[in-house]
Amino acid sequence: MFIEDNINKNDISYIMGHLFRCISCLNQVIFAKNEIYCTNEKKSVAMINEFPIKSKNYKNRIDNIVSSLSMDEYKTKQSIEELRKIIEETNRL
């Protein structure tokens, strides 16, 4: 919600901060669903890629979201839409 409300505000670092928090929360949920403690954010997306319970192609999709974030509103909107899909998939896990 905060990301979408600020895409056109010319503040990519603010958007990136919210994106990181969203991904961190998703990671925590997926770790919990797999009954594994997440003790550090470092390499957590890569670790999730090996878990049995996760969204399909999780790491690749997260990497694409992060690398597509830019000052280009259209690219950022596409990234956030993909993030929304992963959130919805995670809710269904």
Results as ranks from 00 to 15, higher is better:
1 M>Y: 13
1 M>C: 10
2 F>Q: 12
4 E>V: 11
4 E>G: 05
5 D>Y: 13
6 N>T: 03
6 N>R: 03
7 I>D: 10
13 S>D: 13
13 S>R: 09
13 S>K: 14
14 Y>P: 06
16 M>L: 13
17 G>L: 09
17 G>D: 12
17 G>A: 05
18 H>S: 06
18 H>E: 09
21 R>K: 14
21 R>W: 12
22 C>M: 07
23 I>N: 01
23 I>C: 02
24 S>I: 08
25 C>Y: 13
26 L>C: 10
26 L>G: 06
27 N>S: 07
28 Q>I: 06
28 Q>C: 11
29 V>M: 12
31 F>M: 02
32 A>K: 14
32 A>T: 08
33 K>H: 05
36 I>Q: 03
37 Y>D: 13
38 C>A: 09
38 C>V: 03
40 N>T: 07
40 N>F: 01
40 N>E: 09
41 E>H: 13
44 S>I: 07
44 S>G: 10
46 A>H: 05
47 M>G: 00
52 P>C: 02
59 K>I: 06
59 K>P: 02
60 N>V: 06
60 N>Y: 09
61 R>K: 11
61 R>C: 06
62 I>A: 07
63 D>H: 07
63 D>V: 05
64 N>G: 13
65 I>R: 01
65 I>E: 01
67 S>L: 12
67 S>W: 10
67 S>F: 11
68 S>Y: 08
69 L>W: 03
70 S>F: 08
70 S>Y: 05
71 M>K: 11
71 M>Y: 13
71 M>H: 13
72 D>K: 10
73 E>F: 11
73 E>A: 15
73 E>S: 15
75 K>D: 14
76 T>G: 08
78 Q>W: 04
79 S>K: 07
79 S>G: 12
80 I>A: 01
80 I>L: 03
84 R>W: 04
84 R>H: 11
84 R>C: 05
85 K>W: 01
86 I>D: 02
86 I>T: 03
87 I>S: 06
89 E>Q: 05
89 E>W: 02
90 T>S: 07
92 R>Y: 02
93 L>R: 00
93 L>Y: 04
